[in-house]
Design a binder for these strands. Structure first.
Lengths: 155, 155
DNA sequence: TCTATTGGTCAGTTTGTCTGTCTATAATTG
DNA sequence: CAATTATAGACAGACAAACTGACCAATAGA
């Protein structure tokens, strides 16, 4: 007799299976699948989860790579790697920063903005779908409680 | 004026920042850091998040690689890679499966069991810490609501 | 002006995942 | 029972996504 796996449909709703971090992981993983799967279905199959480090943090007017790195919590080199791919695929363009001769600004192209907007749309749809699974009013409470946990973790 | 980054301490508590999937990600990432950081501090620096695919699913009596693969939702090859590392570091051992001449059983060693127990201890501590950040009774509601979301996603 | 800092690049490594192919054993079935 | 098919795992190779370290060029500060 083996234990229940994470993806077992009949997993028991007790004990460590109810740890918030575990449940968070499962929700996050499902969201990744749904959002990036949806993105692929809408004509953006090149956008992968790692790219969210860029899309989440980029300024519409243009951001510097080191800014993106700091905001995303990854190295400049990793940002450069992600940007390189996105640029080849036409989602971003880079231009010299008029304020600093060392820097380059990374900016979304039209296609990049379309991808970002699809990303947001799919994320919002996911959120509404989740809301439909809870009794009325509970989603708002859930959001507030999760936000409180996040604030607690940052403190 | 740039947007707030994920890790910005003063990020606004409105709009898309309250999406459940995003909050879940932040909690999950914090848990990874805390749990695997703690594990390193307790003498298990070799254990990395990817290894949880094994620790979460392994049967104390021993599991087959293909079992682990199916339960973790990754390929047999990935399991083999993870097991190889864990075996070199003394967390698991493999032995022929008496029931099937093709198979090998993977089993936790004493050290592996110690790591698993530290992993569970740290995870539980994390959960209790989170609980301390919410008003009394709210954590239980949160767990149930998250579990309901997970069940909804599986359906 | 000299020095220290910063933005970015280049080169190389590690980790974790994947496909594809192959062998050996087991299970099914004509 | 022999022949076929399915399964467990190993081997080889690719790639994505991160990392470190070394470096250059431009800026900022002492």
């Amino acid at each position: 007799m083996t234990k229940f796996s994470d993806t077992d449909p009949g997993f028991p709703v007790t004990g460590s299976n109810l740890r918030v971090a575990r449940l968070s992981r499962l929700i996050y993983e499902a969201a990744l699948e749904r959002v990036y799967g949806g993105l692929a279905g809408e004509g953006f199959p090149e956008i992968r989860p790692a790219h969210s480090a860029i899309f989440r943090n980029i300024n519409p007017e243009g951001s510097r790579a080191s800014d993106l790195a700091q905001r995303a919590g990854i190295t400049k080199q990793s940002v450069a790697y992600l940007i390189e791919g996105l640029e080849k695929e036409g989602f971003v363009e880079t231009l010299p920063d008029p304020e600093d001769g060392r820097a380059r600004l990374v900016r979304l192209t039209r296609r990049g903005r379309a991808a970002l907007s699809a990303l947001n749309r799919l994320s919002d749809a996911m959120d509404r779908d989740l809301e439909s699974a809870l009794p009325a009013g509970r989603m708002e409470m859930l959001r507030q409680d999760l936000a409180a946990l996040v604030a607690h973790l940052r403190a």
